[in-house]
Write a protein that binds this DNA or RNA. Sequence first.
DNA 1: GCTATCGTCGTAAACGTTTACGGAATGGAG
DNA 2: CTCCATTCCGTAAACGTTTACGACGATAGC
Lengths: 343, 343
Amino acid sequence: MGIKELARHLNISIGTVSRALNGHPEVNAETRKRVLEAAAALGYAPDQAGRSLRQGTLNVVALLLSTDLTSKTDTMFFMELSRGIQDQFAEHGLDLVIHLNKPGMDMLDRVKRIVERRQADALILAETRDDDPRLDYLAGRGFPFATMGRSWSGGSHPWMDLDFDSAMRAAIDRLAGFGHRRVALVTGDPGYMLDSMLRDAYRRELAGHDLAVDEALMIKADTHEEGGYRAMTDFLAMSAPPTAVIFPHYRAVVGAYACLAEAGLQPGRDVAILSCSADTTIAQFMAPPLTCFRLDLYGLGGRLAQALLASMPRFAESYGSALVQEIWPWELIGRDSDGFRVG
Amino acid sequence: MGIKELARHLNISIGTVSRALNGHPEVNAETRKRVLEAAAALGYAPDQAGRSLRQGTLNVVALLLSTDLTSKTDTMFFMELSRGIQDQFAEHGLDLVIHLNKPGMDMLDRVKRIVERRQADALILAETRDDDPRLDYLAGRGFPFATMGRSWSGGSHPWMDLDFDSAMRAAIDRLAGFGHRRVALVTGDPGYMLDSMLRDAYRRELAGHDLAVDEALMIKADTHEEGGYRAMTDFLAMSAPPTAVIFPHYRAVVGAYACLAEAGLQPGRDVAILSCSADTTIAQFMAPPLTCFRLDLYGLGGRLAQALLASMPRFAESYGSALVQEIWPWELIGRDSDGFRVG
DNA sequence: GCTATCGTCGTAAACGTTTACGGAATGGAG
DNA sequence: CTCCATTCCGTAAACGTTTACGACGATAGC
């Protein structure tokens, strides 16, 4: 069962067995074959704890999800991302541990605990905030980590992010092409980099289309159904409501649709609705189908994992040690929720 | 940083330090206080690998999710469940590792690998199938595990499940009360215990209401939006379509709604739609709001974790060693998707 | 024939922790 | 004072693996 038993069974020393299993060159080809066959036959697999202790590594990477996922954000997004990350790690014998935090718990404390107790070899953070203290802490300790989403400063850690500028340009191009001039934006808390960058891109692209930026049309709301419902309610109460609304978070769109239905209005006919979010199956089954963006989240997760691996010394030989920071494009999928001419 | 350094810093042996930290009784109260204070001050936390090696335990429980989550099933369900499980485990210093499998991979192999490589101290399985080979394997090896969902035989392992009978009774009670006599059911693959039990309960409750069971009204479909769309399409093509349809999986309802909209029909007026699924935020924002069931998934996850703990020898002292198998009730929340009289 | 090199393998230390065992000090009973 | 029990603590072994070091034989160079 242990390596000792395997060695005894083969009349070989445990040192040689270990070397044979780990592919070290200084072992006879025939000996290696015997060892591998015996290991397979006896179902031997090295004990993680022993190996971890010896080489000071756990083969575990933790993914920390910071907000209350199920109630506020898009679980689909993170499931698909996690799958991509995990499959990539699996090829290197690494496990992904997803840490879901209780709403009240401080994220920095959580990170500190994981680092100090050596619960993982590396960390992946998501939903980063501007000036996120977690990043400084990890960088200060020299702990390997990567993030989904960049900071304003860029930073010197690996990350993947989305091209908000081009997405917003495509969105506003499309809406302006339909004749819309009062285009609203509903984001979540701008404390998150995601929402902050969306707002930034929105301002820039409006200006690029010679459209005035009306601060009243930039609403901050919760990123779930009820948030979207309330935001839409606010818009309808205006003296001059927007003719088009961009919802980066698709769950908010569900709320907005409900609000419009109650008011006897129809998305895609009375108000244009467009979502800057990854395309989900539900988007094409909404009534009317939702215009949003195509995004390869599975692939993105895989690349994020690779970027992290490249920053870890033990994988330097297979990945080099380049700093990988990528901005992924996404492609607009026009559907019926915003397809009408105005004015 | 290790326990050695901490001991040297205190002029105490490492044995005593270890005992002090682990709450053993044979250590002076004042010594214990000094140790705890120093540990906190120096930020010492025991190394998992060393501890694992010594006491042959990893403090890790794996949750195995078997189907392709994001594309086929309800991610919300498992996120909420996971949160409950994890929070419960956290109180005992256990980590929850979620293993997402690639669609093509055999589940039994995955389980075997986890057990043989000692990647976890216990397992939680979901989406069990009738005659699931994983259960036999684990029981045979004496490996601690629990399942979300029971088998027909009940089995001698801990599980949590839902009370399908009472839910189906409430659903059919309600629909029959509105005058419906042709009530259809759309489930996923009956190979899964969940769908199998739903079909069973459906048959029984129809009979209990003196309604005939028409096999043509029991459709098997994929449990996502497109599956619901297709099922609804099939119903509408019938010479005598059902006047009410029960969709256990809420994602399928989204597809059904879309199908009805295209046909110029309205849920809750032309066809009654009712979902035997946990209430999600989206359900109340559908148009019309969806009748479904309230379920405390977070609490359920916590109980499932406790049930598993009770089956593990090392936690016998805190949990006894009773076999915990519970069937949870859920409460129908009537909304507008099915609220109309027929006939 | 002596030495150097190479290929292969065994030995033993080390990783950080927990715990069985035994010892020292103390206190109380006789 | 002796003896025993109790309280507290130090010592060292053990968990399963990896790897630095050295050993051994064989081969080659001179």
